[in-house]
Amino acid sequence: MDTYKLILNGKTLKGETTTEAVDAATAEKVFKHAANEHGVHGHWTYDPETKTFTVTE
């Protein structure tokens, strides 16, 4: 398992979190669910070198 990071750049919610996942696709599902639960919808990017997802509203 690897550690993946999410950076939230929402209009009303900003922050960072991490998750352990077997691959980037699994981490993305976890992060998108969490972002949706917090009402953050926007443009997603992924940097494979740093294993970091970013969502920007």
Rank of each mutant, 00 (worst) to 15 (best):
K11G: 10
D23H: 03
L13A: 08
E57K: 03
V30A: 11
K51M: 07
G10N: 04
E16A: 07
N36R: 13
E37D: 09
V30C: 07
D2E: 14
I7T: 04
L6T: 02
E57M: 05
K11W: 14
M1I: 10
T45S: 13
A27P: 00
H41Q: 12
F53D: 00
K51R: 13
K5S: 06
T45C: 07
K29C: 08
L8W: 14
T17L: 15
N9V: 13
Y46V: 01
T50L: 08
G42K: 02
H43Y: 14
K5R: 13
Y46K: 00
V22H: 11
T19S: 05
K14E: 06
V22F: 12
Y46E: 00
T50C: 05
N36I: 14
A21E: 04
F53M: 01
D47L: 04
G42P: 01
A27S: 02
V30E: 09
K51Q: 06
E49H: 12
A35D: 01
V55I: 08
P48T: 07
E28H: 11
E20D: 10
I7A: 03
A21R: 02
V40I: 14
Y46W: 04
T26E: 14
A35S: 05
A34H: 15
K32F: 08
E49W: 10
F53T: 00
T12L: 13
D2W: 12
H41Y: 14
D2T: 14
T56W: 08
F31V: 01
T50E: 06
G15F: 15
L8M: 14
K32H: 10
L8V: 10
Y4N: 01
T19Y: 12
A21S: 06
F53A: 00
L6H: 01
L13H: 15
F53G: 01
E16V: 08
G39W: 05
V40Q: 03
F53Q: 00
H33L: 15
E49S: 13
T26M: 11
T12D: 13
H38S: 12
D47T: 06
T45Y: 09
V30S: 07
E57F: 06
H38Y: 15
I7F: 06
Y46C: 01
D2Q: 14
T52Y: 03
N9Q: 09
K5Y: 11
M1Q: 08
K29T: 10
K51C: 04
L8H: 03
A24L: 10
K14I: 12
E16T: 10
T50W: 05
D47R: 03
D23A: 03
E37P: 03
T18G: 04
V30F: 14
D2L: 11
T3K: 09
E20T: 12
T3E: 08
H43T: 15
T17M: 15
K29S: 10
T18I: 08
I7K: 06
M1W: 12
A35W: 06
T3W: 09
K29P: 03
K32V: 08
T12S: 11
L8F: 12
T56L: 05
T52P: 00
K29A: 14
E16H: 08
G39C: 06
T50P: 02
N9M: 11
K32G: 04
G10K: 04
H38M: 15
Y46M: 01
N36A: 15
A24M: 12
E28P: 00
H43N: 12
Y4P: 01
H38A: 15
F31Q: 00
E57Q: 07
G15L: 15
K11Q: 14
G10P: 03
H33E: 14
D2N: 13
A21T: 04
F31S: 00
E37F: 11
K11Y: 12
N36K: 14
V40M: 08
L13M: 14
L13N: 09
A35H: 03
G42M: 03
A34F: 15
D23R: 02
L8K: 01
F53V: 00
T12E: 13
D2M: 12
K29Y: 09
G39M: 06
E49D: 14
T26K: 05
H33Q: 15
D2C: 12
T26S: 13
A27W: 01
T45K: 08
D23S: 08
L13I: 14
H38F: 15
D23K: 02
T17V: 15
D2R: 09
A27M: 01
L6C: 10
V55D: 00
G42Q: 02
G42D: 02
T54P: 00
E37H: 11
P48C: 06
A21V: 04
I7P: 01
K29F: 09
H41K: 10
V22E: 12
N36V: 11
N9L: 14
T52K: 03
N36M: 14
T17Q: 14
K32L: 11
K29V: 11
A21G: 03
T26Q: 12
K32R: 15
T17P: 02
V40N: 03
T54R: 05
A24W: 13
A34N: 08
N36Q: 14
A21C: 08
Y46S: 00
D23M: 03
E37W: 09
K14L: 08
G39V: 05
G10M: 14
T52H: 03
N9E: 08
E20A: 10
G39T: 04
A27H: 00
T12Y: 15
I7D: 03
D47I: 05
L8I: 15
H43C: 11
E37T: 12
A21L: 02
D23I: 02
L6V: 04
E57L: 05
Y4L: 01
G42R: 02
K14D: 05
H38L: 15
E49Q: 11
T3F: 07
F53C: 01
T12V: 12
E37V: 13
H41E: 12
D2K: 12
D23E: 03
G39E: 05
A34Q: 13
E57N: 04
K51D: 01
K32D: 03
M1F: 11
K51P: 01
V22Q: 12
E16K: 05
A34V: 15
N9F: 08
E20R: 11
G39A: 06
D23V: 02
V40Y: 06
D47P: 00
K51N: 05
M1S: 09
L8P: 01
N9T: 07
